[in-house]
């Protein structure tokens, strides 16, 4: 299993990105989607996912919709307008981070 500590700081960005692509999603669906994309390498734990979703909702980045599915209620999350903007900002930050990490881990030495 992937080292969850390394992913922890990026969980909110991952959620925002998935919701941007998937429209509206519910908690369980998000865990499965991440598992599917990373071929089981990364598992978002339930104990981390819901706090992250609730925090993003309280910040006004997500909005909740509820539907009755299979004799139970299901809560779907989707991005607000503010959430769409924030997703773009956070993705840029994450890409910068990945680029920097790549340079640190795999430096390309040049002789001037």
């Amino acid at each position: 299993m992937a080292n969850s500590k390394l992913y922890k700081g990026s969980l909110n960005t991952i959620i925002l990105k998935l919701l941007d692509e998937g429209g509206r999603m519910y908690g369980y669906e998000i865990t499965q989607k991440v598992k599917e994309i990373t071929k089981g390498e990364l598992k978002i734990t339930e104990g981390a996912l819901y706090p992250a979703l609730h925090k993003l909702e309280a910040e006004g980045l997500l909005v909740v919709e509820v539907a009755k599915v299979d004799n139970r209620l299901r809560k779907y999350y989707k991005l607000t307008e503010q959430g769409v903007k924030e997703k773009t900002n956070r993705l840029v930050e994450l890409e910068d981070f990945i680029r920097n990490m790549e340079q640190l881990v795999n430096p390309k030495w040049t002789i001037n």
Binding site: T45, E46, G47, Y50, P51, H54, K55, A58, E59
Partner: peptide, 25 residues
Amino acid sequence: KKFGVFGFMDVVAERQKAMGKKYRK
């Protein structure tokens, strides 16, 4: 078991925090 040793307690505590923020708003 997938929720860890503390069960739902972390989720509840974090939800309280997030809802507190909403209430203050």
